[in-house]
Amino acid sequence: MPTFAQPYPAEPQTQPRAPPPPKKPAKRSTNEYPVPQPVSILFVDKGNQNRSIIAHAAAELLRLQTLNSGTKNPFTRLDSAGLYVSSTLITRPFLVHAGAVHLPRSVPVTASALPEPLALRALFHAGRTSLEERDVRNRLQRHEARGLEAEDFSRYDFIIAFDAEDVAVLARLSEQVGGAGQRARIVLLGREAPVASPRNVIRDARNAGQDVNDATVYGETVARVWAALERFLQAECGWRRPERPIDGARMPLRSRQFMGSQVRASGIWLKHLREAGEWLIAVDEPATEGAERVVTVTAARELLKEAFDLAFGALRPVF
């Protein structure tokens, strides 16, 4: 019987493959472009008359420059204090127990000393004549030195010091007054290049027989503090430097500041002021319990006087 070649088996029928689903876009890291969150900062040096005042004033100027550019207020409160200034917390035995060394006999010093005039003069030089700069200068030249309080470790997001020794003492003080509500991070400003005390620089130069100009030393201190503060805000707080100067002609907004109280302003009225739309009236959290508050008024140039007068009348000024 003849044999026939067997046909090749038929290939199984397959369903056409569906096209692969489109790839989801890669998720952007949440830290790539951090959204700035308002923070509170306390600047601390030994006497609350030099570096802490310079940093305090510089931060206020950066705040107003940021607001004038149309960006969110980066701070909920700013203040400065002295580690060696007498307070309910700061006593000589407490400082010694916390590891402070080489304490002068005069430590702790009495509170209420005013800032070193050279410090503010170096920051507010002849070129700083805008309304914003004059408001900050007038307010801070009346700032009375205060000592650190136990509540400061829970009241502020950052406590910024200028000397490694002070950072160590602050860390021990934080442990000794420890509580569940503590939130402050203790930071050394200018870790790569710490900012030396201008008084110490001048003293050491004269002891070495060198000629030194006090105003020049303070000017260099201002430049170092300003640069270190900007680096800190950019790295830790997501802040971005505005491109235009604080009073630039192309700045969309302008700002004013004064010290006031909310005693005469009801919650509803204050909410209305904040949400008026044509301007922003921001009232800082108090720097210490019961203290007056910094009031910042930001508006378009043509509306600034109206907004300032409204805030000034509603939030009782303190002078």
Rank of each mutant, 00 (worst) to 15 (best):
A5T: 07
Q13H: 11
A18N: 04
P19I: 03
P21E: 00
P22C: 04
R28H: 01
Y33H: 10
P36E: 04
L42G: 02
D45H: 03
D45I: 02
K46N: 14
N68H: 11
P74V: 09
R77W: 00
A100W: 00
H102L: 02
A122E: 11
F124W: 02
G127R: 10
T129E: 11
S130W: 05
L140K: 02
Q141P: 01
H143V: 02
E144G: 11
A145P: 07
G147Y: 01
Y156H: 01
D157P: 03
I160A: 06
D163S: 06
A171P: 07
E175L: 10
V187D: 11
A193N: 13
P194L: 00
R199N: 10
A205F: 10
V212C: 08
Y218I: 01
A228I: 06
E230S: 11
Q234F: 02
C237I: 06
R241L: 12
A249T: 15
S255R: 08
Q257D: 04
S261P: 15
S261T: 15
A265H: 07
W269D: 09
H272E: 15
E278W: 15
W279Y: 12
L280P: 04
A282W: 08
A287H: 02
T288L: 06
A300G: 04
R301G: 03
L303V: 15
F312W: 07
F319Q: 09
